[in-house]
Amino acid sequence: MYEANATVIGTIATHPVKRDLANGEQVVTFRLASNSRRLDHTSGQWVDNGTLYLTISCWRRLVAGVDASLHRGDPVIAYGRLRSHEYRSKDGVERRDLEMRAITVGPDLSRCAAQVRRWSAAAPRNTAVGASAAGGVPGEDPTGAAGMATGSISGSGSAPEPVGT
């Protein structure tokens, strides 16, 4: 099993699922579909050239951001370590799945618009940010989850509506 760093541009194909593990860690996983297109010079048309599917797993600081921001159908860019996972299915067939342990995931701004909200500098990431929190940041969204103010992604091409106003 070899590992290589790679960047994959695609669309989230399944709803991201957050799980709590027995050791206290959390992980968010989802399937990503990356479509390859090429120009057919004889017809002048763009044609699909296959789809790459891979499982993305997000750990540590990435969990809160992905869980609060990304949904099925969102266009994203994922960067991380690729590896092949080989296993035997229930019916005895050997299978291979491509997985990525993501280092970073974000919206593909060539295909959507996104409102960015930074982590609150005044609150730890594992507690909610409140308007009356000691050292709260003026103008920060007090409804942020896991110590961050949440944003949204809009695939319509227009600017997204403000969140939390």
Rank of each mutant, 00 (worst) to 15 (best):
S110C: 08
Y79A: 00
E94H: 13
A68E: 12
G106C: 03
V76N: 08
R81F: 01
D91R: 13
Y79Q: 10
L98H: 05
L98P: 03
R83G: 02
R72F: 03
A78T: 14
D74P: 02
R72N: 09
R88L: 12
E86Q: 09
L109T: 14
D108H: 07
V66S: 10
S69K: 13
P75I: 13
D108A: 05
G80W: 02
Y79K: 00
H71Y: 12
V105F: 11
R101V: 11
A68N: 15
V66Q: 13
R96N: 11
S110F: 13
A68S: 15
S89N: 07
L70H: 07
A78D: 02
G92C: 02
E99Q: 15
R101Y: 00
E86H: 04
D74I: 12
G80S: 10
K90T: 13
D74S: 06
R83A: 00
R83F: 04
Y87W: 15
I77F: 05
L82N: 02
K90F: 09
A78Y: 01
I77G: 07
L82Y: 03
L98N: 04
L70G: 06
V93S: 00
V66E: 10
R95C: 09
E94K: 13
R95A: 05
R101M: 00
A68G: 08
I77A: 08
G92S: 07
A102V: 13
T104H: 06
H85W: 10
V105S: 03
L98S: 02
D74N: 15
V105T: 10
R95F: 04
P75F: 12
S84T: 06
V93M: 00
V66R: 14
G73N: 10
Y87H: 04
D97I: 07
L98Y: 05
I103K: 05
R88E: 15
L70S: 07
G73A: 11
L82K: 03
D67F: 12
M100T: 09
A68Q: 13
D67Q: 12
G92Y: 05
D67R: 06
S89I: 01
D67E: 14
R83H: 07
S110N: 14
R81I: 02
A68H: 08
D74M: 10
S110H: 14
D108R: 06
R83W: 02
Y79M: 01
L109Y: 09
V66W: 10
D91F: 05
G106Y: 07
E94M: 10
G80C: 03
S69N: 12
R72Y: 03
H71I: 03
P75S: 08
R96D: 00
V93E: 00
D97A: 15
R83C: 02
V66H: 12
R72A: 06
D67Y: 13
D91M: 01
M100W: 08
V105P: 13
R101G: 08
P107K: 12
V66K: 13
R72D: 01
G80A: 06
V66A: 07
T104F: 04
R72K: 15
E86F: 01
G73M: 06
R101H: 08
E86D: 06
Y79V: 12
K90S: 14
V66I: 13
V76C: 07
G106S: 06
R72T: 11
D97E: 15
V66D: 10
D74G: 06
Y79R: 09
R83P: 02
R96F: 00
D74E: 08
R95G: 03
T104S: 12
V93F: 00
D97F: 04
H71D: 13
K90H: 12
R101L: 00
G73V: 10
P75T: 14
P107Q: 12
